[in-house]
Design a protein around this nucleic acid. Structure first.
Lengths: 254, 254
DNA sequence: CAGTGGTCTAGACCACTAA
DNA sequence: TAGTGGTCTAGACCACTGA
C-alpha cells in the first residue's frame, strides 16, 4: 500500500487525514447528516492501514464534528440547539402565574415537554449543606428530575431543600403543583429575592452519557443554582444539560 | 497472554479497563497529579495487547480525567477553576470607576493578569451584522484579545462594534483606556442599559486547542455577549473560554 | 541508558444495517 | 449477503523523559 502524496512527512498521518476531512466538512463538501467516505475508501485514498484511518475519524468524533453509526457509516453531526432563557424562567411573573417552568420555552417553540420526577428524603452531601448553610449531614428533600423535549433527554437536575422547610409540603410530592417549587416556597412565606447560577462545562460521566443519550464528543454544561430569600439560601439545584441541545441565555443590567 | 479474570466477557475489554481505572481514581486510590500504572503494567495486569490498554487510557483522557505526558506517564488531571462574576464585571459601578474588566476577579484572587490586543477594521460576518442590526457586510472595528492569568491562556475574545460608532475613538486603539470599551461608549453618549449573554459549550477546534493550551478532553464555553443601549445593540463580543479554568457566575433577580 | 508514551501495520473476527 | 463500523492482536519503530 503506497502512501498518498496528500500526506506530508513530519506530521502524523492520522492528524493530517483528520485535518483534510475537517476542512472538507467546513468547506461544505459534506453537509450536516451526510455520510463521510467509508474506512475502506479512506484507506485506499490515503494508502494507510485501517487503524490509522480510524484514529483520524476518532479525532473528528471527539471534536463533535462527526458521529459513527455501526453498520451504516460515519456522518457529519447535526446541531439544533434549544433555547433556554434563564431570566424569564426565574422571574416571579412567570412562576407566579402558575406556569410550569418550561412552558415559555417549549410552547413558544412548538415542542412537547416531558419530565420524570423522583422525590426522596436523605442527608445533604457536604457541598450542598455548605451552600444551603445548614449543618453537614442535615436532612434534605431531594427532587431528582429528567427533562425531555420531543422525547430527547435534555437535562438532569437534583434540587435540594432543607427538610425543615419542605417536608410535609407539596414540594415533597412528585407533582409540586402549579408554578412548581418556587411558587410553593413563596406560599410558605419564603419570598425569593434572587438566584445565583454557577456555570461550568466538562465531559460527561458514562452515567450521564447513558441518561442524556449523549453523542461522543458532546460536553455537558453544569449549572449550580442557589435560590435566596432575604435571609439566606433555601434551595440548591444541581443541573446537568446536554450542551448539544442547549443555549443558556442571561440578561445582565448595566 | 492470558486474560485477567477481572474482565468479563460481553463488554469490550477496553471499556472495562477504563471503568476499573476510573473507579480507582474516584475512590481516591490515585489523587490529582498521581501517575497511573504504565501501559506495560496494565498490559500485564489485564492480559491484553498494548492497543487495548491505550484505548482504555484514551477513554479516560477524553473524559478529562487523565492526561498523558510523552515519556513520563499518564497522570490524573488537576483542576483549579478560576471564578468570573458576570454581574460584577458588567456593572456600571465597576467600569464606571475606570477599573480594568479583570481587576475585580484577579486582584481578589491574587493572580497576575495579562492580555494581548489586536485591533482591526473590516466587514462584519453575517451573524455579527445580524446581531448588531446593521446591513450585512457593514464596516466594523474588531478588538481581538487573548487573556491570560499567571501566564496561562484563559480566554479568547473578539468584540465587534460598528465603525460608524467606534472608528477614530479610543475604542479603535489597542489600549481603549481606563474602564475599557464600555466606559468609552458611555462617554460617547451610548448609555448602556443591559447585556445579554448566550452560553454554550462544545469541543474546541485545533486552533483553539493551540491558542488556549487546552488539554485533551477539555471543552470550551462560548459566550456571545450583546451590549444594548435603550435604542439597540452597540457591541457584540464572541468569547471562548477554557472551561477547565473557569466558573461563570450569574445573578438573577426573582 | 531504560522506561515511557506516540504512531503505524496487516491482519483477524465480530455485530450491525440495508438490500 | 455485502458493506459498514467495533474490537483486538502482536508485533514494529519512533520521540521524549529522567536517572
Amino acid at each position: 500500500m503506497e502512501r498518498s502524496r496528500e500526506l506530508r512527512p513530519g506530521q502524523p498521518a492520522y492528524r493530517q487525514i483528520a485535518e483534510i476531512m475537517r476542512a472538507s466538512i467546513q468547506a461544505g463538501q459534506f453537509a450536516e447528516g451526510d455520510r463521510l467516505p467509508s474506512e475502506t475508501q479512506l484507506m485506499e485514498r490515503f494508502g494507510v492501514a485501517r487503524m490509522t484511518v480510524r484514529a483520524a475519524l476518532q479525532v473528528l468524533q471527539h471534536e463533535g464534528l462527526a458521529v459513527a453509526e455501526h453498520g451504516r457509516g460515519v456522518f457529519v453531526r447535526r446541531r439544533q440547539p434549544f433555547r433556554r432563557r434563564s431570566v424569564q424562567r426565574l422571574s416571579r411573573r412567570h412562576w407566579g402565574q402558575g406556569k410550569a417552568m418550561w412552558e415559555a420555552d417549549t410552547a413558544a417553540q412548538n415542542r412537547s415537554f416531558t419530565a420524570t420526577v423522583d422525590v426522596s428524603r436523605g442527608r445533604a452531601p457536604d457541598e450542598i449543606a455548605e451552600r444551603l448553610r445548614v449543618p453537614a449531614g442535615s436532612e434534605v428533600i431531594v427532587r431528582r428530575r429528567l427533562h425531555s423535549v420531543d422525547g430527547q433527554p435534555l437535562q438532569l437536575s437534583a434540587a435540594y431543600l432543607p427538610a425543615e422547610i419542605a417536608a410535609g409540603t407539596p414540594i415533597a410530592e412528585p407533582d409540586a403543583g402549579p408554578g412548581g417549587t418556587y411558587a410553593r416556597l413563596d406560599e410558605l412565606g419564603f419570598r425569593l429575592k434572587r438566584f445565583v447560577e454557577e456555570v461550568q462545562a466538562r465531559m460527561p460521566t458514562p452515567e450521564e452519557v447513558r441518561r442524556l443519550a449523549l453523542l461522543p464528543g458532546v460536553p455537558v454544561i453544569t449549572v449550580t443554582r442557589v435560590a435566596y430569600t432575604s435571609t439566606g439560601p433555601v434551595e440548591v439545584n444541581e443541573i446537568v444539560v446536554n450542551s448539544d441541545l442547549y443555549v443558556l441565555e442571561y440578561e445582565i443590567p448595566a
